[in-house]
């Protein structure tokens, strides 16, 4: 045993590259085999004719991508896109003040932060169910509104765009708060003091110092909400019903009821492409300093 160890050490010592790859290899292999390769296969599938009982037949076709120009699917694409943007915007409006409050939360900071991290990690399914429980016709929201006399009869909240939007925002809000908090937290307080001494009132101070310096967090937060919203499936599935389909539901549908794997793959690939576009956009803006134009 000792001898083996000696020989291993002796071999590894002058070969740092080999050592690095020895550590990397198992995990990398896993990711290649079970993440990258499947994505490639999926991409290939998306360009093959549909098989009769699921699966594909040999051949090459762009038919599945062409189908997206059908108004039915264009509609789904548009809805997915618009809703993801809207969800991102709402999360930003709701999340920024919260992130600000946490960053200035003093002794409460850790607790406030934990209360945001918690939903970040708790079961999305359970959280979506909580929304159902509140919003259904005989749910608590209707119940309370009836009692308070706001409405006279139960109104339909579930299976409406409102329910889906509420579910999306509810689901992804923590993704917005955390990065904004992180950038506000990093903000050097003496910069704010400097702005004050230079004559900036609180509103101006926020506009010219706090906001621009928290932009990296805002951009990251928008990305982190937009991406999962784009690929979301459970929310529209459980809160939206058949009329509020998003592209994630379309994908799921093709792999279950519709049994059109290549079309589902194409839809899935479009989701992936949109996500990568969003990431590239993010990387573009990320490093651009949010400064002000030079004086003339």
């Amino acid at each position: 045993m000792a001898a083996v160890r000696e020989r291993l050490l002796a071999w590894l010592h002058p070969r740092p590259q080999a050592r690095a790859w020895a550590l990397l290899a198992p995990g990398t292999l896993w990711l290649l085999l079970f993440f990258l390769v499947p994505l490639i296969i999926m991409f290939v599938y998306s360009m093959m004719p549909r098989g009769i009982y699921g699966g594909v037949d040999p051949g090459f076709t762009l038919e599945h991508y062409r189908r997206f120009f059908d108004p039915l699917y264009l509609d789904i694409l548009r809805r997915t896109f618009v809703w993801s943007i809207a969800c991102t915007a709402i999360c930003l409006v709701l999340g920024y003040p919260v992130a600000y409050a946490i960053a200035r939360g003093g002794q409460w900071k850790n607790l406030l932060l934990f209360l945001v991290v918690l939903p970040f990690w708790t079961s999305f399914l359970v959280r979506t169910f909580a929304m159902i429980f509140l919003l259904r016709d005989s749910g608590l929201v209707n119940n309370w509104m009836l009692r308070l006399g706001v409405i006279e009869h139960s109104i339909t909240l579930l299976y409406t765009p409102f329910a889906v939007m509420a579910g999306l925002v509810y689901g992804f809000l923590p993704f917005m708060i955390l990065p904004i908090y992180a950038s506000l937290e990093k903000l050097d307080l003496s910069l704010l003091e400097a702005a004050e001494v230079l004559g900036a009132r609180p509103v101006e101070r926020f506009r010219r110092v706090t906001l621009p310096l928290s932009m990296p967090g805002v951009v990251a937060g928008c990305l982190l909400v937009f991406i999962p919203a784009l690929g979301s499936f459970l929310t529209a599935d459980l809160l939206g019903g058949a009329k509020q389909m998003m592209i994630g539901n379309l994908v799921q549908n093709q792999f279950s009821a519709a049994r059109n794997w290549p079309f589902g793959s194409a839809a899935s690939f479009i989701v992936m492409a949109l996500v990568l576009l969003a990431v590239m956009f993010y990387l573009r803006v990320k490093d651009r300093a949010p400064g002000e134009a030079p004086l003339r």
Partner: peptide, 29 residues
């Protein structure tokens, strides 16, 4: 090691990939 930056970038891809894409691509595999 060579390709370190690219590798780090690659590590982030599963995190941004929607779960549904991961799910169906594995199903196909």
């Amino acid at each position: 090691f060579r390709g370190r930056t690219a590798f780090e970038g690659f590590l982030y891809v599963p995190i941004v990939t929607p779960e549904i894409v991961v799910g169906i691509s594995l199903l196909i595999l």
